[in-house]
Amino acid sequence: MILRFRNVDADPADPVETWPYEAVVTAVERGGVHDWARLTGAVRRDPWGELSRSLEDYLGYAEPTGATALLERAIRSAREEARATRPRRGRRPGT
């Protein structure tokens, strides 16, 4: 299935980070595995970025589906990984 946006000033071929909120919602609701993989890739690259926060906002009220569960898990695991790999405050690397 090919993802198409209606009444949104974006193209599905654009980087997902540039999609407006409505396009993200459309991708979750009507997209396929390829589209969800693109979203999860963007979440992994920037777990607290604008796309991740928009997605998190939508998932807070979306009807539960397999796609919403996958995306919630992607956000959670990307943030956990980011927390685990960032240097601790007040400590220099190697100490």
Rank of each mutant, 00 (worst) to 15 (best):
A82G: 00
V43W: 00
E17Q: 13
G31I: 09
E80I: 09
V43T: 01
Y58K: 05
E72H: 12
R76Q: 13
H34R: 15
L70T: 12
D57R: 11
W48K: 11
G41W: 00
R79P: 13
L71Y: 09
T68S: 08
R53Q: 15
V16L: 05
P20N: 07
P20T: 04
V43P: 00
G66A: 14
S54W: 13
R73K: 10
D46N: 15
R45Q: 14
E56Y: 06
E22T: 12
V43C: 04
R83P: 00
A23G: 12
V16Q: 04
V28Q: 07
R73C: 03
E50R: 13
T40P: 01
E56C: 08
L59K: 05
D57K: 08
P47H: 08
A74Y: 06
A67F: 04
A62F: 06
G32P: 05
E50T: 12
T18M: 02
R44V: 14
R83S: 02
A78R: 05
Y58F: 15
W48F: 14
R45H: 12
E56F: 05
T65Y: 04
A37W: 02
A69I: 06
E72C: 13
P47L: 10
P20G: 01
T68I: 01
V16F: 03
S77Q: 15
R38V: 04
D46K: 08
S52H: 01
D46Y: 01
A82F: 10
P47V: 07
R44L: 12
G31K: 06
V25Q: 12
G49M: 07
G49C: 02
V28G: 08
W48R: 14
R45D: 13
Y61P: 00
R53L: 13
E22I: 02
H34M: 11
L55P: 07
S54Q: 15
R79S: 06
A78T: 03
A78E: 06
T68M: 01
G31L: 11
D57N: 10
L51Y: 00
G32D: 14
G60W: 00
T26M: 11
A23Y: 07
A37G: 06
L71M: 07
L71R: 04
V28D: 09
